[in-house]
């Protein structure tokens, strides 16, 4: 007669826990995990804050940031535990980003960098044209709108609001 071995209650609980961990959607724990790491780094920097010798208050400059970082870690742990034990009914398995959002992110960073080197006029015209080319826009008046928009904004900021838009690093080299 073969005796059937039943797992202990403790093993069952751990088994169920690991099943839940493997079942859960990993993307939902990425963000809280990253924020926990950032909070820990913040706590390290908080410990390095200078302490003024004349301070006689019980609450100093470290109190608020420390409290916030600790609360942040607690919230993140709660989110992760919540994800393990109560799966979010709204979650989906679609990828977080598509090629257009990645293009958008690169586009914004690229434009911000270009404006630093090329100045507003050249950077905006270049970026607008690149954007229209990326989306394979064939309508000519879209390109015309890009030019008109760039020039109108330049005129309005310079002559109506008296705000000097960036000239760019290269323009500075030419003027020198």
């Amino acid at each position: 007669m073969v005796m059937k071995r039943t797992p202990s209650t403790k093993n069952c609980a751990w088994g169920a826990f690991f099943k839940k961990v493997t079942d859960m959607n990993v993307k939902n724990i990425i963000l809280p995990s990253v924020i926990i790491v950032i909070s820990l780094v913040a706590l390290y920097f908080i410990s390095q804050f200078a302490v003024p010798s004349f301070q006689d208050a019980s609450v100093g400059s470290k109190f608020f940031p420390t409290a916030i970082a600790v609360i942040q870690i607690i919230i993140c742990v709660c989110i992760i535990l919540g994800e393990i034990f109560h799966k979010d009914p709204q979650q989906d398995s679609a990828p977080l980003f598509n090629k257009y959002s990645i293009f958008g992110a690169v586009f914004i960073i690229g434009y911000a960098t270009a404006i630093y080197f090329l100045g507003y006029l050249a950077a905006t015209l270049l970026a607008f044209f690149l954007y229209l080319v990326f989306f394979k826009t064939t309508k000519r008046y879209y390109y015309l709108i890009a030019i008109v928009f760039t020039l109108v904004i330049y005129y309005v900021f310079a002559n109506v609001f008296y705000v000097a838009l960036p000239e760019g690093l290269f323009a500075g080299l030419f003027y020198d």
Binding site: A50, A69, I71, Q72
Partner: peptide, 19 residues
Amino acid sequence: TIGLLVSTVGLDPITSVPR
């Protein structure tokens, strides 16, 4: 909490300790 932590960047409002 992200907003609160960002708001602590800069000089401390009472003792001017850089944070």
